[in-house]
Design a protein around this nucleic acid. Structure first.
Lengths: 228, 228
DNA sequence: GCACGTATCTAAGCGGTGTCAAGATCATCT
DNA sequence: AGATGATCTTGACACCGCTTAGATACGTGC
């Protein structure tokens, strides 16, 4: 494409406001968005944070992106695929948070706990996003691709277990440990907000301390061995 | 009320077919149902089992019960309240399954594992119901009343821990242990179907053995103590 | 520099949903 | 018998996911 034909929809670069164009006067709105799929995902996350997962409709996302209700169908097969794209972003960010937590831990045993804490903290800070993330996974009964990639939570747990002395050839033991760790983190993530636990949280000095206590209580890789 | 005024809508007792009346000729259908709220919950469970949680709409429930779309609003404030009623039934049944599993265990340590297995088995056999159960709990960030009642999962875990020697006065330790157990069971319940775990399940001889292995791996109350 | 194919978007509409307001019907109490 | 309150229906509204048909703009080939 020649530079002479610079298209006017780039006057406001799409990344500047996350793809929102609804504020523009109608006749200044370009027919082609330019980067709609990314803008739709961004709009989805905004709605998610502002109004919760139940408000996340395809039409609302299109509205937020300043586009007709049918436009998203040219970028996503259906609503589920859009949600999966939003969820994928979440899994990536969760993976990054976990990597950071692991890097800051002094030894593998501590790393396992810190990974769990980072997991729960992420889920508690982004509850709507976390629900979307898990819903698409549970529906398909598969771990999301972004969650089992190398630089993801799952991978970091595996590496940490090996660093802590576990034999990577013992696939069964590795898997059982990873599953146990993952399940506990997921459970804590979904239940940590329950009002019944407020007293304990206060006694321990806040929710993060509470989470740490629960995870340590389970004690994945804390030196104990199983009676089997 | 006098017995002389026996109402004709009792000709077919509501429990006989679970409240379904759609099969009756239209002009034989009584204007008043007689036991609609119970029938609606029963209809909800039928739809849940037959078509999954996404098909569980208020209108579908009303249809299944042979009643107009607005009728449920005279018995439930909104859709959420109907779902909560369905969920409550689920929590009761889960409590019963847990009680049974606990009763069949030789000692407290085994009981904890069996309780967990019963929990996961229930969730895996009634996946749609289980999702409804947890959704209404997570939305309100409270344990469902039916789940924390005396003869419920939560109560049975507590009693088992005490029977195993834990000091009930140590509220914090009790709660942390219960939470850890509950979280693990919930996590396993939601992830046990993941395709990635198929090999391990086969190696262990089925899904129930797999669940047992994971739960034992966490080892709530299996004689080990925490490094804390 | 222009035409054409294709990607992108809009408009209109279908059947479905949750929810509400108004009216019909029935059980019961006086 | 008449009034009252509970229960159910009818009809409507706004929103939803999704489809089809047509409009528009981009970029490539000439």
């Amino acid at each position: 494409m020649t530079q002479s034909a610079v298209s006017f929809q780039r006057v406001v670069p799409p990344s500047a406001d996350g793809g929102r164009k609804a504020a523009l006067p109608i006749d200044e709105r370009p027919y082609h968005h330019g980067d709609l799929s990314r803008a739709l995902v961004a709009a989805g996350r905004r709605i998610l944070e502002a109004e919760g997962p139940d408000a996340l409709s395809l039409r609302a996302v299109a509205r937020e992106a300043g586009v007709s209700p049918a436009a998203p169908y040219h970028h996503f097969k259906d609503k589920g695929e859009l949600l999966a794209a939003v969820a994928a972003e979440g899994w990536d960010e969760l993976g990054a948070a976990i990597a950071k937590a692991r890097a800051g831990a002094p030894d593998p045993a501590a790393a396992i706990t810190e990974i769990g804490v980072a997991y729960v903290v992420f889920a508690r800070r982004n509850p709507a996003l976390y629900r979307i993330m898990y819903r698409s996974a549970c529906d398909k009964e598969t771990m999301p691709d972004h969650a089992k990639a190398e630089d993801s939570g799952w991978g970091h747990v595996a590496e940490t277990l090996v660093a802590g002395g576990m034999d990577p050839a013992d696939v069964q033991e590795m898997l059982l440990t990873q599953i146990a760790a993952w399940c506990t983190a997921h459970g804590v993530a979904e239940m940590a907000g329950f009002k019944e636990f407020e007293p304990v949280k206060e006694a321990l000095g806040g929710e993060e301390a509470f989470v740490r206590a629960v995870l340590r209580h389970v004690g994945i890789m804390s030196g104990r061995r199983n009676a089997n």
